[in-house]
């Protein structure tokens, strides 16, 4: 009796996540219908986002926020991945025991900082630095990308470090025992051994970077324009949704659901592809 109850409870918990996923998709899909019928797939390539005077209709297109989201995420991942790998390798293979602890704690604390704080710091302190050194208006793709990178580095580094730590000492020792240098052991034993964890950390960080709203809203400029250079301001899907939801009506609301659906599908697709491509081959 008790066992049966427990079995049902755990079955319920396990299936709940699946139904949530399907449910969210269904809701997004339903509410996006109006916009999908109006614009179809042209939505993806339309640059305008204009409501009519009477607020009843207009032209809405997702091209700019989609491009903005992908570019800012790309910048963030390009910067974050090598740095996070470096941090993880340093902490697991190179650093002295006495340093590892404080560094690890610092990284975990960085991961705990709310994103609004990164946004404020980025806007008031970091954006002027970017403006001075690289150019542009301060806010823009690059600033958002760099701050996003800073935000995901702790996640990526912490997960990668944990998975590198699972490399058995004896495996490393047997590489050393064949005359490998530290660099060769890291490259040929530690990295391949912890490949799954490394890919997993990148995927998680990617998901976070794609969906990050607050910090990016502060830093990307929130302008509906295509960036011509890396320092130009633009917008991203979550930022556009957060900024416009309060005043939007009818078709615009539906178009936002359409955008949200796209973000959902894009995140889902990237994560699935990464998972199957990188993790499926060896198992």
């Amino acid at each position: 009796m008790g066992a049966n109850l427990f079995r049902n409870l755990s079955f319920f918990s396990a299936t709940l996540s699946f139904f949530l996923l399907v449910g969210i998709f269904a809701v997004l899909f339903t509410y996006a219908q109006q916009s999908m019928q109006e614009f179809g797939f042209d939505f993806l390539l339309t640059e305008e986002w204009e409501a009519d005077e009477d607020d009843e209709g207009g032209i809405f297109g997702g091209y700019i926020p989609i491009i903005g989201t992908l570019l800012s995420t790309l910048i963030a991942m390009t910067i974050a991945t090598p740095l996070a790998m470096g941090i993880a390798i340093f902490l697991t293979e190179i650093a002295h025991d006495k340093i590892v602890k404080p560094f690890s704690i610092a990284i975990e604390l960085l991961a705990a900082i709310p994103s609004i704080i990164y946004g404020m710091w980025g806007l008031f302190y970091f954006a002027p630095i970017v403006q001075l050194t690289i150019g542009g208006n301060g806010v823009g793709l690059l600033t958002a990308g760099i701050v996003l990178a800073i935000m995901v580095i702790p996640y990526m580094a912490a997960i990668t470090r944990d998975s590198m730590n699972t490399t058995p000492d004896v495996l490393k020792e047997s590489a050393y025992a064949m005359g490998a240098t530290k660099f060769e052991v890291i490259k040929d034993v530690v990295m391949p051994y912890s490949k799954g964890g490394i890919i997993g950390s990148i995927i998680l960080s990617l998901g976070r970077a794609l969906g990050e709203t607050m910090a990016v809203a502060f830093l990307i400029g929130s302008i509906m324009s295509i960036p011509k250079s890396i320092t130009d301001p633009t917008t991203s899907i979550p930022v556009l949704l957060a900024n416009n939801f309060a005043e939007a009506q009818d078709l615009e609301i539906s178009s936002m659901y359409y955008l949200a659906l796209i973000l959902f599908v894009v995140s889902f697709a990237i994560i699935s592809v990464a998972k199957f491509y990188f993790l499926g081959r060896n198992k």
Binding site: V170, L171, E173, S174, D188, V189, P192, Y193
Partner: peptide
């Protein structure tokens, strides 16, 4: 050279 208690094939 050295051989260990448990087999330690490299992941390759």
């Amino acid at each position: 050279g050295m051989i260990f208690q448990r087999p330690t094939p490299f992941p390759m």
